[in-house]
Computed example of a mutant assay.
Amino acid sequence: MVADSKGKSDISFAGTFAASPFAACFAEICTIPLDTAKVRLQLQKSAVAGDGMALPKYKGMLGTVSTIAREEGLAALWKGIVPGLHRQRVYGGLRIWLYEPVKNLYVGSDFVGDVPLTKKILAALTTGAIGITVANPTDLVKVRLQAEGKLPAGVPRRYSGALNAYSTILRQEGVGALWTGIGPNIARNAIINAAELASYDQVKETILKVPGFTDNVVTHLFAGLGAGFFAVCIGSPVDVVKSRMMGDSTYKNTLDCFIKTLKNDVCLPFNFLFLS
């Protein structure tokens, strides 16, 4: 009951910023094989062969994981893990650290009671946009490394690793290139962050009103599952556009990428949702 009387966590903002990304980094290590498969599916385009459409190289999430492991080795599934961890440290830290103070800023210091869902969504949109604006270079490098498949013999890789990718992009494309895809990335992460944090907050709040439920691991698990599912469904189309802009320099801008994807690959914005 001491915690309730205080109403606030004893952990400082600096402590929250330092601690919050560790869980995100652990999740990144565990899930990056699926994320690599997701990026390959998102970057895969419909191809014409002969009189009809060529069969896609990657089919479904599990099929893509299997193909990458068979052709490139298991280690290929963890491509992009270094910039992925960079991203979680920066983006994960900022969005989680800022959520509570931004939410309190929107409702006011004298507010009492349950925070309205609209304020939770607004706070999550704000923190997601701020976090990814700072972390966009790490996301770009992660996608570029994940996009590299098995190359023909004698063809050198563009990047030897994460640090080489940062320096190569800076040297060859300029500082601004590190923020390629920033528009859809802000939209994607603001939407997903709002869906994750706001829906998690709301689902947990709703569950706690059900007799028999308390603020324990089970409640957090149900809230997390609901938030994750909702966030993926909402953010999927924007995520495809973001990955394509970062992995393919042929698109002029966000609108151009969206229109071409919708026109040529109408089924792809949601194809990574299927497991086989």
Rank of each mutant, 00 (worst) to 15 (best):
M1G: 11
M1S: 11
V2R: 15
D4L: 13
I11Y: 14
F13N: 06
A19W: 03
P21R: 02
F22Q: 15
F26N: 08
E28I: 08
E28Q: 15
T31K: 09
I32F: 11
D35M: 12
T36P: 03
A37Y: 04
A37G: 03
V39K: 04
L41N: 02
L43T: 09
L43W: 03
Q44G: 01
A49M: 13
A49R: 11
G50L: 06
G52P: 00
M53W: 12
A54W: 10
P56V: 09
Y58A: 07
Y58C: 10
L62R: 13
G63Q: 03
T64N: 04
I68D: 05
R70Q: 10
E72G: 07
G73R: 12
W78F: 05
G80S: 00
G80Q: 05
Q88Y: 08
G93N: 06
G93E: 08
L94T: 08
W97V: 11
P101T: 08
V102R: 06
L105G: 04
G108Q: 07
G108Y: 10
D114S: 11
L117T: 11
L117Q: 12
K119P: 02
K120G: 05
I121C: 03
L122G: 02
A124Q: 02
G128K: 05
I130N: 13
T133P: 03
T133W: 00
P137L: 07
V141H: 07
V141R: 09
K142R: 10
V143G: 00
V143T: 11
L145A: 01
L151G: 01
G154F: 00
G154N: 02
V155Q: 09
P156T: 01
S160K: 15
A162G: 10
A165M: 08
R171F: 10
A177Q: 11
W179E: 00
W179D: 02
T180D: 04
T180A: 10
G183M: 08
G183H: 07
P184N: 03
I192Y: 03
N193R: 09
A194Q: 09
A195T: 07
A198N: 07
Y200P: 04
Y200G: 08
Q202P: 07
V203G: 13
K204Y: 09
I207N: 14
L208F: 07
L208R: 15
V210E: 15
P211D: 11
F213L: 15
D215V: 07
N216E: 12
V217P: 06
V217G: 09
T219M: 02
L221R: 13
F222A: 12
V232A: 14
C233T: 09
I234R: 04
G235S: 03
S236N: 10
D239R: 05
K242T: 11
S243Q: 13
S243C: 08
M245P: 00
G247H: 06
G247F: 00
T250S: 15
T250F: 02
K252P: 00
N253L: 03
L262I: 00
K263Q: 13
K263W: 12
D265W: 04
L268Y: 15
L268M: 13
L273F: 14
F274L: 15
F274Q: 13
S276N: 15
S276H: 13
